[in-house]
Simulated scan of single mutants.
Amino acid sequence: MSHVIEQAVQARLVASAPRAESVPATLRYDRDDPFAVRMAFPPQATLEGIEVSWAFSRELLEEGVDAPSGRGDVRVRPYGYERTVLEFHAPEGVAMVHVRTSDVRRFLKRSRHLVPAGLEHRYLDLDQDLRQLLRDAC
C-alpha cells in the first residue's frame, strides 16, 4: 500500500474580478508526515510562475469543512454545503480558493484510512527525525 495520497482538485481562485478563475491544485497526504496536509498549485496559478505548496494540519482541514478554523497563515471555512474556502495568508497578500467540499471529504476519508485520526503519533519516526536534526546541526 502506498504511503502517499494525492488527489487532484479544481480550485476556484477568488479575486476582485467579477469571475472566479478555476485552477488545478493537488491535495497531498504523506504517512511519513502524519499531521500535515499539503496543497500545491502549479506555476500557471501563482504570481511567481513556480509551483507553490502550502502545508497545514490535517486537523485544521477536517475542522474547517464544518466550521471556521485557523488563526494563522492558513484558514479554512465552509461556504454553503458544496464549497470549502481555504485562505492562504502571505506577506504578498491573501489567496482565497474555493474547493468542492465533497472532494475535501473524500480526500480526508482516504487519509484517515491510511492513518486514523488520533493515531498520527504512531507513524512518527522520532529516532530518524532526531538523527536528521543532529546531522543538520553539525
Rank of each mutant, 00 (worst) to 15 (best):
M96S: 15
M96W: 05
L126Y: 01
L60H: 11
L124W: 04
T26E: 08
V14F: 03
A40Q: 07
D129G: 10
P18S: 11
D125A: 10
A137E: 13
R106W: 06
T101H: 08
G118Y: 02
H3G: 03
E48L: 09
A137Q: 11
A36T: 07
E82F: 13
P18F: 06
F41Q: 03
I50G: 00
V52I: 06
L86F: 05
A25E: 03
A17K: 08
D103Y: 00
A15Y: 01
G64Y: 01
P43W: 03
I50M: 09
R110P: 00
F41W: 11
V65T: 06
V9G: 00
C138Q: 14
V99R: 00
F35S: 02
H89T: 09
S111G: 08
I5Q: 09
E87F: 09
S111A: 15
D103E: 11
D136H: 06
R19E: 14
A55Y: 08
V94Q: 15
V9Y: 00
S102C: 11
V97T: 05
V23S: 05
L27Q: 03
D73C: 11
L61Q: 04
P116L: 02
R105F: 09
M96P: 10
A117M: 06
M1Q: 13
A67R: 15
E21A: 12
G49K: 04
L108S: 00
M1A: 13
I5C: 11
Q7Y: 02
V104W: 00
Y81K: 13
S2C: 08
V65C: 13
L86K: 03
A11P: 00
V74N: 02
V37P: 00
D33M: 08
R110A: 12
F107L: 05
A15T: 15
V37G: 03
E21N: 13
L134N: 14
R135E: 12
R71E: 14
A90W: 01
G64N: 04
R38E: 10
L60M: 12
D66E: 13
P116I: 04
R28H: 02
V65I: 07
W54Y: 13
L61N: 01
D127G: 15
R38F: 04
L47K: 13
P18H: 11
E92I: 06
C138E: 15
Q44P: 05
R100V: 10
G49L: 01
D73W: 06
T101C: 14
Q7P: 08
F56E: 01
V74S: 09
